[in-house]
Design a protein around this nucleic acid. Structure first.
Lengths: 157, 157
DNA sequence: ATACTTGCAAATGATTTGCCAGTGT
DNA sequence: ACACTGGCAAATCATTTGCAAGTAT
């Protein structure tokens, strides 16, 4: 990744805080920038560029703002199944994800919640697992109960 | 050519066994089909369509054969990082994968090897994890030792 | 003989890039 | 003013699809 200036935990209570921080850091704030942040702030989980577009934005502009905000550590994205990337605000620390291949639900977790899993993987394979960019896939409890039969998978192909 | 008496569904010792099984099941075997299977058989891990093409095949034909073979349970594919899908022969049971975001190495595991991880996830979240189609990402021991510094990631973006 | 496959071209979907006009500071 | 940003078109990349011609059984 490219530059990484000030690594302070861009945490905040609202979009205004982020905008102020950005300006103070010498970054420009345009209408799309504000709208993207507001949409991300309003969302209760990672959302797609398509959803951001519906806020009345140009797709390219959304991508460029997300890219910029991600480089600044304000935004991050996850790859869920075969779908497009899903973006979310980085609130304090990186979040990690669990997703269901059948119902598509994405569960956001505090990294500490997966320390147990990480420990097992490190012990067994010396692997340092991270589930913030590529989540843990599988079936959530509810969907698993509906039988292991073939149903309307969200992740075919 | 060996005779493989005990294996289950479409397990086998060589490409000839697979071809025979396919024909017996009423499927057609063409040159591309044979070449794709031979390339997959020769590979020691999941490989890309690009690599299969270098065996002198049409890209579209490779995709269609893989799709067909996958539907028959003979082939499966994994999504590693941001790269293209990687295909491998299904030898007996599904394999699961671990991959390093920095060096790109893909480690193939017997599903049982991840039962410990699966147990923790099931206990904590009621989640039934599967790492056969979407592997566990992170850093392998070797790459992690090289420091958590920013280097040549294979999974930027 | 006939249904299934191939090969090539064109379509799709997600994301990126080029370029020039517009604008935040 | 001037560098950074937005908008729009065109380019990539991986993968899929349409269709005419070829072929396995």
């Amino acid at each position: 990744v490219t530059t990484a200036p000030d690594r302070r935990p861009l945490a905040f209570a609202g979009v205004d805080e982020i905008l102020a921080t950005l300006r103070e850091s010498g970054h420009r704030v345009s209408a799309p920038t504000t709208l993207v942040l507001e949409a991300l702030f309003a969302a209760d989980g990672p959302i797609s560029v398509e959803e951001l577009e519906s806020a009345g934005l140009e797709r390219t502009s959304v991508y460029r703002n997300l890219e910029r905000l991600e480089a600044l550590g304000v935004v991050s994205h996850v790859h869920v199944g075969h779908g497009p990337g899903l973006y979310a605000l980085v609130r304090g620390a990186d979040r990690e994800y669990l997703t269901c291949d059948r119902c598509g639900r994405v569960t956001t977790l505090d990294p500490a919640a997966l320390d147990g899993v990480r420990a097992v993987l490190h012990e067994q394979f010396g692997h340092h697992a991270r589930f913030s960019h590529f989540p843990i896939h599988g079936l959530c409890g509810r969907c698993a109960e509906l039988g292991d039969h073939e149903h309307g998978h969200t992740h075919p192909h």
